[in-house]
Amino acid sequence: MAPLPFLGVSLASAAAVYGAGIAVGNEYLYFASYTVAQYIVLATAWNILGGYTGYVNFGTAGFFAVGAYTSVVLHKTVNLPLLIMIPVGGLVCAVLGLAMGYLTLRLRGVFFAIATLAMAIVLHTLVVNWSFVGGARGAYIIRPREVMFFASYSEYLFAVMLLLAALAVAIARWVERSRLGRGLAAIRDDEIAAECSGVPTLKLKLVATTLSGFLMGIAGAPFPYYVSYVDPAGAFNLAYGVNSIAMPLIGGMSSWVGPLIGALLLGTLQQVATVTISSAANLLLVGVLLVVFVTVAPNGIVGLLQKVRGQSGARKKQNG
């Protein structure tokens, strides 16, 4: 399917989920679904650099928080509508991604991963000491009382995050199947061989960090409106970094479907665990699932399905 029709399907799926949501009409459902959709965006964004290109980014929380704090700054200064704050947050994170890429992409493997983690820590320290955005105390965001066409602000945020998830998935699929995506896959497999095949590796990696940063930024931008109160501990939460890696790993990193499946599965399980057990069980759940998948299906659910399909295909060939 060509990119534009796929974007149509993706948006239609988001609209169907939204329709099902308002049919139930439960505020908590909006709240929980927002989190799952937010993880679809984050996992998809992480996978563009981590899965397609093979560069593991431990700094997701940094990008997410910069998106969130961009909204805080805009709220306190010009108070733009959320739908404008989101692309602005994305652009700020895209620039951050480009800068991070330029400074760190000469590093590989574990050194790159540590550098991204260090970047998140530096950003966290900066925000903690920036009193304009509340510093360590945090900042309150008063949501608009009502929003046009929607029954409540939670419903509006739910619709916005579904839209962003649909866009992120469509972008990731387009990247995967484009000339860019094939170049990124070559970099992941063998960077020197890629360069010797004419692939401009540094340029492509910068495109990947910029795009990945943009998507993480748009996931973070609505966050202050979602929680009404944002502080460094919440915005830079370890869970964003861990989940955005775990979800593609569990779903499968080689394709756009993997992060989507991983985010739906793990995100939903976490929401169920939060209600039935405790939110403290969330990271434990991630840990257990990661151990299981690394052992049983190192290529994630998508890899496992491909393997099963390949085996049944080979059996059919033998019998035929």
Partner: peptide, 30 residues
Amino acid sequence: IRRGIARTFQIPRPFASMTVRENVEIALLY
């Protein structure tokens, strides 16, 4: 490489996750 110098490696370095055709297509595309 784009100016017209190509090389092979002493120890082959295929793009292991790709098919043989996709390996060649990378060089064709870029």
